[in-house]
């Protein structure tokens, strides 16, 4: 059954790749990449059990974290064309300086 789960995740990964290839917009591509990352987490977890190496879980955890940062970086870049802009409201000190 674990073999079936592995195969299913691989099929899902391939389908997600197709969406990443055809787009059409860049947001579709980010969506596909993010979802692909989640499937990679699941794939590594289940592969660890299939091959009897639970130590792989460390890598799965790190993916779950890194994937988020990548998605946010891509999203922010596509939307604002900047990596340095703040997504929070202007700080008090800056307001005084600019005003």
């Amino acid at each position: 059954m674990l073999l079936g789960a592995t195969a299913a995740i691989m099929v899902a990964m391939v389908l997600m790749l197709v969406r990443a290839f055809i787009g059409p917009s860049n947001y579709d591509r980010i969506l596909a990449a993010n979802s692909f990352g989640t499937k990679v987490v699941l794939f590594i977890a289940v592969i660890g059990y299939l091959f009897g190496r639970p130590a792989y879980l460390d890598i799965a955890i790190v993916y779950a974290l890194i994937n988020f940062v990548t998605t946010i970086a891509l999203m922010k870049f596509f939307r604002y064309r900047s990596l340095q802009a703040s997504l929070s409201h202007r700080r008090v000190g800056e307001e005084a300086r600019d005003g």
């Binding site: 079936g4 789960a5 592995t6 995740i9 899902a12 990964m13 389908l15 969506l31 596909a32 979802s35």
Partner: peptide, 29 residues
């Protein structure tokens, strides 16, 4: 685990078949 695998295939099919970004997003998430 198998059910999870099948669910993620279904979701990927949705991402592939749905007509616009927002429906795809809901299928994926």
């Amino acid at each position: 685990a198998l059910a999870g695998g099948i669910l993620s295939v279904i979701g990927s099919l949705g991402v592939l078949r749905f007509p616009d970004l927002y429906t795809r997003l809901h299928a994926a998430s």
